[in-house]
Nucleic acid binder design. Sequence first.
DNA 1: CCTTTATATCGAAACGTTTCGATATTTTTT
DNA 2: AAAAAATATCGAAACGTTTCGATATAAAGG
Lengths: 387, 387
Amino acid sequence: MRPFKIFLKTDLFRSKVCGGLDFTYDECNINIETFRYQFDTMLGTQRKVTIKEVAAEANVAVSTVSLVINQKGYVSEATRTRVEAATEKLSFVPSNAARQLISRKTGNIGFVTRSDHFVRNEPFYTQIFLGTEFEARNQNHYILLSTIPSPYSPGTDTPRFLRERNVDGILIAGRVDPLFITETTDAGIPVVLVDFEYSGLPAVIIDNQTGTREAVDYLIAKGRVHIAFLGAEMDHPSMEARLEGFRLAISKAAEIRDIESEILVVDGEPDHVAGQKLSMQLFSLDPFPTAVFCVNDAIAFSVLEMAAERGIVIPDELAVIGFDDVPRSSRSVPPLTTIRVYKEQLGELALRYLSELLQDNTENSGSFDRGSHSIQIPAELILRESA
Amino acid sequence: MRPFKIFLKTDLFRSKVCGGLDFTYDECNINIETFRYQFDTMLGTQRKVTIKEVAAEANVAVSTVSLVINQKGYVSEATRTRVEAATEKLSFVPSNAARQLISRKTGNIGFVTRSDHFVRNEPFYTQIFLGTEFEARNQNHYILLSTIPSPYSPGTDTPRFLRERNVDGILIAGRVDPLFITETTDAGIPVVLVDFEYSGLPAVIIDNQTGTREAVDYLIAKGRVHIAFLGAEMDHPSMEARLEGFRLAISKAAEIRDIESEILVVDGEPDHVAGQKLSMQLFSLDPFPTAVFCVNDAIAFSVLEMAAERGIVIPDELAVIGFDDVPRSSRSVPPLTTIRVYKEQLGELALRYLSELLQDNTENSGSFDRGSHSIQIPAELILRESA
DNA sequence: CCTTTATATCGAAACGTTTCGATATTTTTT
DNA sequence: AAAAAATATCGAAACGTTTCGATATAAAGG
């Protein structure tokens, strides 16, 4: 809009500069942004196109362009299409940095999980992560991933995005050191837990209890009477719920008594090591059970392996059911009957939940979080050949 | 520095406002940033502390604070300590958004891998990712992860960070659709490939050939004469290199002839499906080999399983060597002798390489990339019980 | 026909940094 | 002793957006 003048010292330079442009030196009465854009492209200096160039191209003010791309306020149909054409033509993409700066939001969401969880053999948390990543695209968020060590020391191990306040909210997947959780909530950063619960914070979890109950009901319906329970890390809320589900299912079945002697648990992570210990205990049980519910697939695999070594026929002599439905479950020998957890969906839901929380936060700022809920998502019994 | 005045309409408001502050209404001759800071904290409106407040606290200009925290230019020892104290006191963290805006850099690095690679059973690429994540902290970068589908369609599947130019560089892990690679290079974004090579682009790869040669040399040294090679996806540069290493090792051994009949390959990913096909072929070989080199651990596991079914004793009747050293290798039966790939290190190195590239790019902008190299990192033969 | 309301557009300020001269002081060189 | 160079500090402009009035026109209401 505003006309401008260029003062060039030599004729040579003058011809050089204006030679590549759409207008001559004499008629430099042109929008300065258009000039800069042309000048830069002529020199090969590819600057990012900004809202200013779009505005110049569409012959409107920058504020109008802003209104168009954010779909706010009043804009006439005519200018809207004009601006959109300009945006398209110059292939304009708004600068994230500038937006962050003015909106005082980062648009980033942190995803935190324990490093040992993340690299373990079965890609459980990896799949959850991918679920959040997928949903993040819809919600126009970026995910920053950070793993934390298991005994966590605040300050030292603090993820960079937390230290630099470079996230709007944080997703915590799986059990982590409570010190980390309090560190983030103390920092005033909204948090949603995934596959874990802690002190009433918003969480997205699996309906462990119902899932387990269905599985055990199935075993009972198939006429199995001696059903063992193999568990580990029983102070984990999910594990507690699974045991609870187990007890509930058993207690409903009139024909079964004396449960406790068939509930086997060990300390530590429910991994293959625990699985081996538990299998040993299982196979020395007397009377020998006809079915076993394992608290996760890793333990079930151990049972399968050890049964194969001892020549115990599955499922005829022993029915085995796991939990999680990791990819390997479908190709174990025999394929494992297990409870499917929709991991991607878990991640998706968690992100959407957090996203909503952030929305609410800004709309009525400082409002109390209205009775933070746990969202439960159902798990599904998948029948394969081990039960 | 600049004195200011506040005009408050009522006495009540006047007392309210100044009541919580360190100074009275009469002596409002104070730095305005200090006032705002105090005022905000009084109201409980926790604004992020900015460089301005630090400057006010340390009684210097904002530019001086900037010089101190970036360790640039001339700053006297006295003011430096004063500024550092202020920074510490107010626990100031520079705003990423503002920095990005002015520096025209995002500080982000994209990590791209195929989704099926990322969620596969063995956390190979997950570990590479964690390596880059680790190094990213040192280099003050954030990692944005995105997976892409295997037949990739540019435009539709384009990761958001690429579309929005929200990364300074991209790391591509494992084989991806060439269309994606050209899309990023066309966009002028520096890229480093990890565990894959393509058209002379900078890459960080494993020394596949030497690794394989060492393994086969070891088998030969142990007196194995009939050595088979099980491979898949042989158009992959890494696989080619492994086969080349195999051939080189064999050709050096005078006592071995007729290799080709013992080189078995199938198409498609080198996963357990390929492993089963290859194992079938292997076990129908005549004369039956005394050792087998598998192009990765997944295939080796299949061999192990099928050997167990057929009662073939490992390593006595058949020595088995894999490649990758995934976590499961140490607990297979028998534990797998394999070639260890330092996955975290691979990721670390790739990030450092990319980081250097970015540095160079800005320093002498527009310079040609001086003979882009592939960095090879050595693999190590790990002796366990299968060979 | 005048007043209010809705629609349309714009300019300028703000967000929180970094960097580029400008200026002032001290030290070194001639 | 004067000139040049090094040191120290500062103010202002810039980065690319969004948002807040202001202003102008068109439509609606009395």
